[in-house]
């Protein structure tokens, strides 16, 4: 079974495929969200230490995972776009960034709402929180650079270089922040998710996984739609776009 993947690397063939993918992943994501939310709120038991408030992790952890995963995928697409000069790769990187930034923000927001009842404070300068904040800055920088350059090809390649520099830096930033945090252990607030994870019951883990997959499929659906718009924007003058739009009339 040799599928010719390169066939789909041209925007003309990818555009209709992306439309179908968006629909299917959108439906799958809604179904998974319903199941995941039901599991998170009605099946998963109340945590005996943290009460009902712990249920925030069912959105917080998937959002945090997705934010990091999306940055990684975005950097890979950006690198592919620079190495092979494929137009579609850069468009994918550009389409991923806003959703990545959104999940980063949700992770920060929900983390803050978790912190208030659990630790009694909205914000802690904890290593993980600070790293997540920096990740948000990196996403914003990527999008800002992209929108500041008018020439689409130059914008794609410049922001691609930035994404690669960011992904090389990310581990260094993460470890330096973690190390900084251990140095400044002023307020002794222990991260209790660690405890939750080790003694987490299977049902909690499953609900979290279902929610993560729901977020993942959601991302695919949204990104596919966004990449369709970017393709139309960039390829507006090509013949295939004109023929396609003429046919549908």
């Amino acid at each position: 079974m040799a599928i010719n993947w390169f066939k789909y690397s041209s925007p003309a063939t990818f555009y209709p495929l992306a439309g179908r993918l968006a629909v299917w992943f959108g439906i799958a994501s809604v179904l998974l969200l319903v199941v995941g939310l039901y599991m998170s709120f009605f099946v998963a038991p109340t945590d005996y230490k943290q009460g009902e408030g712990y249920r925030i992790i069912y959105i917080h952890v998937p959002a945090a995972w997705m934010s990091m995963f999306i940055y990684f995928v975005m950097a890979c697409w950006a690198a592919a776009g620079i190495i092979w000069r494929t137009r579609l790769s850069s468009m994918m990187a550009l389409a991923l960034a806003p959703t990545g930034a959104m999940f980063t923000f949700i992770a920060l927001w929900t983390g803050s709402l978790w912190g208030k009842p659990m630790w009694g404070t909205w914000w802690v300068w904890d290593a993980r929180i600070v790293s997540e904040l920096i990740l948000l800055f990196l996403f914003i920088g990527f999008m800002a650079l992209n929108s500041a350059i008018d020439d689409a090809r130059r914008a794609a390649r410049a922001s691609g270089v930035l994404a690669i520099v960011g992904i090389i830096n990310l581990p260094i930033i993460y470890y330096s922040v973690q190390w900084w945090n251990t140095l400044h252990q002023g307020a002794t607030i222990k991260f209790s998710t660690q405890g939750v994870q080790s003694e987490m019951s299977e049902i909690m883990l499953y609900s979290m996984l279902v929610m993560t997959f729901a977020c993942w499929f959601y991302t695919i659906a949204v990104v596919m739609t966004r990449v369709r718009r970017i393709i139309l924007e960039r390829e507006g003058n090509s013949t295939w776009v004109k023929e396609m739009l003429q046919e549908e009339r």
Partner: peptide, 22 residues
Amino acid sequence: LTLGVRGGGVLVSILVLPLYIP
């Protein structure tokens, strides 16, 4: 990266400052 880009001065701070953190 920001050479000749409009608003380059402010943009460079958004791009570079997070990388300066370590």
